[in-house]
Design a protein around this nucleic acid. Sequence first.
RNA 1: GCGCCCGUAGCUCAGCGGACAGAGCGACGGCCUUCUAAGCCGUGGGUCGGAGGUUCGAAUCCUCCCGGGCGCACCA
Length: 512
Amino acid sequence: MPADAVRVLEAALADAAGAEVALERPGDPSHGDYATNVALRLAGARRQPPRTIAEELVEKALGLPAVERAEVAGPGFVNLWLEPAWYGDALAGILAAGEHYGGGSAATPERVQVELVSANPTGPIVVSAARNGAYGDCVARLLAFAGHEVEREYYYNDAGTQMERFRASVEAARRGEEAPDDGYRGAYVAELAADPGDPVPEMLHRIEASLERFRIHFDSWALQSELELRLPEFLPRLETYERDGALWLRSGAYGDDKDQVVIRSAEKGGLPTYRAADIVYLADKLGRRFDRAIYVLGADHHGTRNWYAAIARMLGFDPGRVEVLLYQFVHLVRGGETTKMSKRAGDLVTLDELIDEVGVDAARWYLVNRDHDQTIEIDVDLAAEKSRKNPVYYVQYAHARIASILRNAEASTVSALSSEAEPPAELAVEERDLIKRLAEFPTLVAEATERRAPHALPNYAIQLADDFHRFYHEHKVLGSEAEPFRLALVTATQTVLARSLDLVGVDAPDRM
RNA sequence: GCGCCCGUAGCUCAGCGGACAGAGCGACGGCCUUCUAAGCCGUGGGUCGGAGGUUCGAAUCCUCCCGGGCGCACCA
């Protein structure tokens, strides 16, 4: 049994219709288990009334073993009611796939690098960088689940102007002076000043620790200073010119908003700009290491989209291999008050503070549960609340409840699951709804992956938990007539809940 | 001025071509001798920013307008 029962049914119907068929779940239960609009779509091309096409499809659909009832509705929808056997097969397919259910959707697996966070080590990770991390890490998780080979890299500037200001601020603190006007301040500067030597490695160490705590692990770290040294080896492949004493890249001719300075003029110091490192870095990624390079950047960097595409083209790479994923900003709300954060001001909200306050699970949940293109407000008070009000715990609770049922079940019954998962003659609505929800998962994950939109997962997890809680409330699993089937159902639900949470980076506890 | 993103219930946001638009919070009312009540059920609440257009069908696609966020450094 293939793992995706809906696609199997779609394929059978497509065969009957002679065209692609997409099934959807009608909002109104009286419109069947599934419905399709093919007849409406085909009407124009076939020069036939949609209802006529729908009638024919209904006839053919009734010939399929999975279909219990089919009828034409409205302007030409085909509504389908499915046999319990279909639900049984769907469930068996999920159990057979186990924790791989919904995964492996990549048509051609690639080597993908996701470069994320990449905040310069001038201070602790703040909340907007945390969104970068949460979002980027979830995209990486999705890609890996789809079958790609994924590496996470952190890139940072260890030598530029900002770093000099940072070092100068720490130096000033060591001398007991105020930070320069354009410098950095805050308790962490004083802490770093207490130890002698370069504060950058220690700052990086702290950042890594925060991110590990946030369940983001980096495979590698890249330094701007090392990359920019290699600019000369790529210069022959680039179109450059001198103006006002600086070396410019003709990126404007390749789709960038304008040309960019790569090496500063002598009076500005004569050093390479960060764009020099960008070029080397991209050439290195696409030339040797990866099929695809993904950059996760804040919305204020949207201009870099054209920049990266331009240098890819100039270097002779397909710009389609470069993706710049942007996310909008985060505001924290506490007691109804919005916290504005700026990096140089002292009153920033750090990732560690957020985790201390709401926990890793809630922090990750709230940072990825919205569209990355949406500016978000996180209600810290709600996120911190361990109650029914908080969707994170609502979902985790469903998982824990199932774990509890499984603990109480006979071990022998649980181990024999798949073979005894015969569905009862009559399925309750709650059972049908739950299986249909589980059946949505592969499509949902594949879409979330393609669209780089992990926020679909927490939203799905809420719906799945919802379906489960309703089922749980109405039906007894242990000791019921349909115990083997329901144990199978509940096991599959637990697997999918756990996967949904895992893709978001949230724990799936067995007890709460 | 040019460019990117967003305007959906009192608030925070899902939905992004289909049949009467959803969730959480907030407000109000029910349900625990039952596998975890961190649960379930119910009530109230929306001209989907506005105007045109495409389509059998638009919150969803296109154009324009209004409102908000963010960019347009020899900073990163």
